[in-house]
Amino acid sequence: MWQEKLRIKKSNPIHGLYPFTKMWITLLYCICAMILSTITIDGYPVYMMASFLIIPVLAAATGVLKKISGVIKSIAIISLFIVLIQGILIKSDLILYSLNVFNLFNINFYTDSLQYGLVLAFSVLNMGCMVAWFFGATDNKELINAFEKRGMGPKASYVLLSTLQMIGVLQKSAKTIMSAQQARGVETEGNVFVRSKAFIPSMIPLILGSITNTEERVLTLESKGFLVKGEKTRLFDVKPNGKEPIALTIGILYAVAILIWRILLWVL
């Protein structure tokens, strides 16, 4: 049966969770990270930093660690720069550590700025990587289908789906055009101006072509009943795998525990 055939099969119980469940878990995690950032030891957001370790573990358990390791790396680099820029370039009263460079000048790390930098950096890291986990573990098609079942209009879902498809197609043809331009001797090396001159003519035929196609696409959609009134059906259907209550319970317990801890620290 085609309905069965079209379903995206996921044997991993976390991977196979319903998109919204994964979304709730992501949201809870991000909120918890923000709460944890307010619990510090000597001014350092140690707990938030430690909670980041959950993400690689979760990603590994979901089976998507490899898939998102590139994103994690690039977010980590940005985070590192945030810490450095904040810690070194924003001056505050207390110098934590002074690095002497060849007896020429000192690079100072300022305590307050470093602490603030760590909060920023780990907020970015925690939220960025958790969202990366979410998208890594959720197929776009599933997510859009889930939203559609929650009342998102067919036009919105069409625009999202076709955007995702078109990016793939355009990425491919951009590369083809670039190599064609190169083969024709159009400069893609050289200085900025030479390169910019190559850039514009490579874009325009690409765009014009897609606009012309759009016109016919409108007629295609209309002919295929896209604007017909009434409920639409869907061959593709994302279904829960049954583990959602457990996953959600764990997420909520984690959040509640951190919330209680936070409140206790205030009260005590």
Binding site: K155, V159, S162, T163, Q165, T214, V218
Partner: peptide
């Protein structure tokens, strides 16, 4: 519909 279909192109 035409405007909506232009959105994927704009994004691309």
């Amino acid at each position: 519909l035409l405007a909506l279909l232009l959105i994927p192109i704009a994004v691309a």
